[in-house]
Amino acid sequence: MSQQVCHIKWNADGLIVDGQQADLLPHEGGLKELLAAYYKSLGLNYPKFHKMDNLSKLGVLGVAMLSAQYDLSAYADDAIAMHFQNASASLDTDWVHQQNINEGKAASPANFVYTLPNIVLGEIAIRNKWYGENLFVVADSFDLERWMKTNQVLFDQNKAEAVLGGWVEVLEEKFELELYFVVKQ
């Protein structure tokens, strides 16, 4: 069995952290600027953040918000598994690389390294020094039941004490994060 201890839902309509609804932070511009506003308000001192694609930024910020709610440092560095789903994989970033190819320009290595959906897991792992399991699944929409079922497999086999993840989706200006933290009972 497992217990859900923290839930974050974040999209254009607002931010809900454990049932507490808040308006989005004021910002000028689009998603990039919105994410930058949260970076500032969370007081993250992590210049590498600015090099990430929006998908990775969204995931890293979500986990930072969750860490502010719930003490994750009590877990061993390989005890938290990460398990995410989304629909568009890394299409938002793939498109930039594809455009470079289409237009015959030199590919940007800094862009290419984000053309995989699981890089967001890598970025979260690097920032938090987590060596646990990572899984990234592509699905039409967030399937909470399947997500929990897969987590149960991890818990049953003593592979993780907690699972962090859910849905992390970015395509152009549209974004949606649904982040859960569940612990083994």
Partner: peptide, 17 residues
């Protein structure tokens, strides 16, 4: 500046472009 290996590759692209 804390640049890394990917930044080095990106500077190569800057010089080219």
């Amino acid at each position: 500046l804390g640049l890394d290996s990917i930044d080095a590759l990106e500077i190569i692209v800057i010089l080219d472009n």
